[in-house]
Amino acid sequence: MIPSLRTVRQQHRAVNAPIADLLTYRALPTDSVDYVDPFLFLNHHGPQVYRPHNQGLPFGPHPHRGFETVTFILNGDILHKDSSGHESVIAAGGIQWMTAGAGLIHAEVSSDEFKATGGPLEILQLWVNLPAAHKMTEPRYTGLQASDIPLVAAADGVVIHAVSGEWAGTTGPIASLADVQLAWLELAAGARVALPIAAARTIFFYTVAGQLRANGTDTQERQLVEFNHDGDKLTVEALTDSVLLLGHALPLKEPKIAYGPFVMNTEAEIQEAYQDYQLGKFGTWNG
């Protein structure tokens, strides 16, 4: 069969949602889109430049249960620490993949070096839902520096940073629990790439910077493109130098109850998450 192009269902503009002095655009959820199953949430922090002797990122210790966070550090750095004993500083070009699972407490702050010297910062944080069968899995964390992530020359002027799943014949280093394939792409103006993505899978397509044409539809920075499930081919053309966050996964098609830092399948499970957190079942925080 000849591959057919997916059609665009709708485009959604990220909304300005600053957090303290951190410039933030929330691409998901917004008034126009709740979530694109199984992708729950995306905050785009920056780009901005921090002065020397700054306070850094404001994300002190907080709990999570029932989903995964994937953090792309395009500029700056993040010091991750959690109640399961993981700690690392990931610099520009790296990623952090945390499976909250049954529950943990974590903090995402800037390193002492970044707070002292300042500099450019741009970070994307994506939340991905876990299927009911994995919501209470043991928490885990992987931090990868830029050098740990394979670069794939998918076409002239197109570089794919392959994080999870297979991209143009190269497999990313993260083995996702639910076959979530994620990457970010750098595209030079005029570059074009075609990627096969099965029609059953949900595409996550967020233009970080620049202007792109996706299956014939023009889009621009800080816009989320939502696709129908009516084709198995994605073509991307860069109208300017661009950066794209791209992923795909099978939709879970399960009930979703999201309340603050917890995402479960029922209200009772949300109440249980709060009770477990208050009872100290998310581990001990040693700040």
Rank of each mutant, 00 (worst) to 15 (best):
W285K: 02
V159R: 13
A27T: 02
V8T: 03
Q211A: 05
T235K: 00
I174H: 12
A20K: 08
H53S: 14
I123C: 05
F114R: 05
A209G: 03
G143H: 08
F204W: 15
W285D: 09
L22N: 13
P255T: 14
A249P: 06
L246T: 10
E267H: 14
Y50W: 15
V193W: 15
L279I: 07
P38F: 12
L195R: 07
G119Q: 04
I105S: 07
V208F: 04
E221H: 05
V8I: 15
A132I: 05
G231L: 14
P173Y: 01
L28R: 02
L252D: 07
I19E: 01
Y206W: 01
G260D: 11
I123W: 00
E108A: 07
A27S: 15
T69Q: 11
N54R: 05
E269T: 06
T266S: 15
G169K: 14
L144T: 02
A199G: 09
A188H: 08
I78E: 09
K253F: 13
R222Q: 13
P255Y: 12
Q275M: 00
L239T: 00
D218W: 13
H86Y: 15
T207E: 00
A194C: 10
N129Y: 08
N286C: 01
T170R: 00
P196S: 06
N228E: 14
T24N: 14
G76L: 03
D232P: 13
P261N: 03
E108K: 06
G216I: 07
A198M: 04
L74C: 02
Y25V: 00
